[in-house]
Design a protein around this nucleic acid. Sequence first.
DNA 1: CGCCAGGCTGTGC
DNA 2: GCACAGCATGGC
Length: 289
Amino acid sequence: MTTITLRPDQPFDLDRTLSCGQAFRWEKVEGWWQGIVEGRAIRIRQDADLLTFSGVDAEFICDYFRLDQDLPGILSSIDRDPVIARAIQECWGLRLVRQQPWECLASYICATNTNIPAVKRRIALMAERFGGPVDGPFGTAYTFPEPEVLASAPFDDLWDCRLGYRTDYISSAAALVAEHPDWVERVAALPLEDARRVLMELRGVGPKVADCVLLFAFDSFEAFPVDVWVHRIMATTYLPDIAGRSCKPSDYERIRRFAQDYFGKYAGYAQEYLYCMRGHAEWQKRGGR
DNA sequence: CGCCAGGCTGTGC
DNA sequence: GCACAGCATGGC
């Protein structure tokens, strides 16, 4: 067991961070969060300002949860009106975790037009079938499958992971990443808009998936993914003339441009705080206003 | 049963 | 450029 004591200037809420739906490989069991990150099985809990964990070292935890990122500074930079202020207040301690590009890409391809429990199930099934076993603090776990393995997996075996119509998307994305070992570096080296276009060349990757991957795995904090929840929140509070519920491409573009201009270079944090607020009872009670 | 979910692709105009 | 159908799956 290792511990980290959070400083007063390091606001952090482990529960909020791992349950808000950004990462899909964590589960809370008897007070402990169990997860698989970068091939390691991690067990972690929080008691006030004390983090207790095993499976990785303190540097890994600090890096994964971005504990050294100046969250108070970021939040004050996006805190521009009462709505986002309330999200910041109610989602106190939420941090964006540092995800691995390939896993993040595949995960969000699995996350289109579906719900979070189903995404978690798909990823767990893929890991059990195509990942590697790792012994950790909570028995045997399975790493997220390497692109080479998924690229050569028979269609029917992938289909059995409940991927549905996304089966081909995962297969071909895996093939591309497997064929280009420098894929991550190449995308990482591109400016946001160029990286976005490159990601969207993949089948099954549209604007929303591309923005998620850029935000969660490529440190593009200006990226602003617009899913149905964020679309709803943005339309009701900031762009009331957007009528439809279907998020047309022009709406998507308008929303993200507005958000980047309005919230600034950490618009992605604003997105995640607004998204996190979607499930808040008080928000829903008031009909999203 | 129907409707919705961290949407995207393909077709037709 | 726009709209609109179709899509596998699971939660509620």
